[in-house]
Computed example of a mutant assay.
Amino acid sequence: MSSSDPTVQPVPASVVEQVDAADVTLSNPKRAVISLGSSLGNRLETLQGAVDALEDTPGVRVKAVSPVYETEPWGVDPGTQPNYFNAVVLIKTTLPPSSLLERGHAIEEAYRRVRDERWGPRTLDVDIVAYQDVVLDDPELTLPHPRAHERAFVLVPWQDVDPEAEVPGRGPVARLVEQVGRGGVAARPDLELRLPE
């Protein structure tokens, strides 16, 4: 986390390492980055429900959860939609990308996600941002996420939980944050998502 924003502290590496050391339930897991967003209903409760649902998924363990940010909607005129709460979750998983995508869609559907408007308001957005170092161009799933490198609402919380992270093919997250800036992305230190026990 940049020293220019003292209100939000990154997750200490020691915390992630402790969780990793305690995890003996997965065999040869892959590391994945999940972006969560909600602009309708009880946004914080929805994001926490998504974190818990990921942890409850066989073959998935949540390793770190970023601070919560309030962000302006992407791709629409300012003020035409409610703001989002956004966060990034680091997981380890034995699921292949396609199964992880299916699980993300199932979690969205559990929160009554509607897909009738591109970039429209939504109860919950669950996006796979990156999966290990996999580069995939498939009609169903592109990895890394094709717009992650230009979205501050993904990059800023991702940098919080993994300051050394890189977007495959795009470079270090820290450098990408510098390029896109932090406009429209406001820290919410009064809100917190819990790491599942």
Rank of each mutant, 00 (worst) to 15 (best):
residue 38 S to E: 05
residue 93 T to M: 08
residue 88 V to Y: 02
residue 44 L to S: 03
residue 46 T to K: 05
residue 84 Y to S: 02
residue 112 R to Y: 12
residue 105 H to V: 01
residue 46 T to F: 08
residue 98 S to P: 02
residue 65 V to S: 12
residue 90 L to I: 13
residue 31 R to M: 06
residue 12 P to D: 05
residue 31 R to C: 12
residue 45 E to Y: 07
residue 74 W to T: 06
residue 98 S to F: 13
residue 99 S to Q: 15
residue 108 E to V: 07
residue 3 S to W: 01
residue 47 L to D: 04
residue 7 T to A: 15
residue 101 L to E: 09
residue 68 V to S: 04
residue 40 L to V: 08
residue 100 L to P: 04
residue 73 P to W: 09
residue 36 L to Q: 05
residue 28 N to T: 10
residue 13 A to L: 10
residue 48 Q to Y: 09
residue 37 G to L: 02
residue 106 A to L: 14
residue 112 R to L: 14
residue 33 V to T: 13
residue 75 G to M: 07
residue 49 G to R: 11
residue 100 L to N: 03
residue 107 I to S: 10
residue 91 I to V: 15
residue 69 Y to Q: 02
residue 19 V to A: 10
residue 22 A to Q: 14
residue 99 S to V: 12
residue 41 G to W: 09
residue 43 R to K: 15
residue 23 D to N: 11
residue 78 P to F: 01
residue 7 T to L: 15
residue 24 V to E: 03
residue 82 P to G: 07
residue 72 E to C: 12
residue 64 A to R: 03
residue 53 A to T: 08
residue 3 S to E: 09
residue 101 L to A: 09
residue 29 P to T: 03
residue 110 A to L: 14
residue 16 V to M: 07
residue 66 S to D: 05
residue 21 A to V: 00
residue 93 T to R: 06
residue 55 E to K: 13
residue 26 L to H: 06
residue 1 M to G: 15
residue 62 V to H: 04
residue 103 R to K: 15
residue 82 P to A: 03
residue 108 E to L: 11
residue 38 S to C: 09
residue 78 P to Q: 04
residue 69 Y to P: 02
residue 114 V to C: 07
residue 10 P to Q: 07
residue 26 L to M: 09
residue 46 T to A: 12
residue 95 L to K: 04
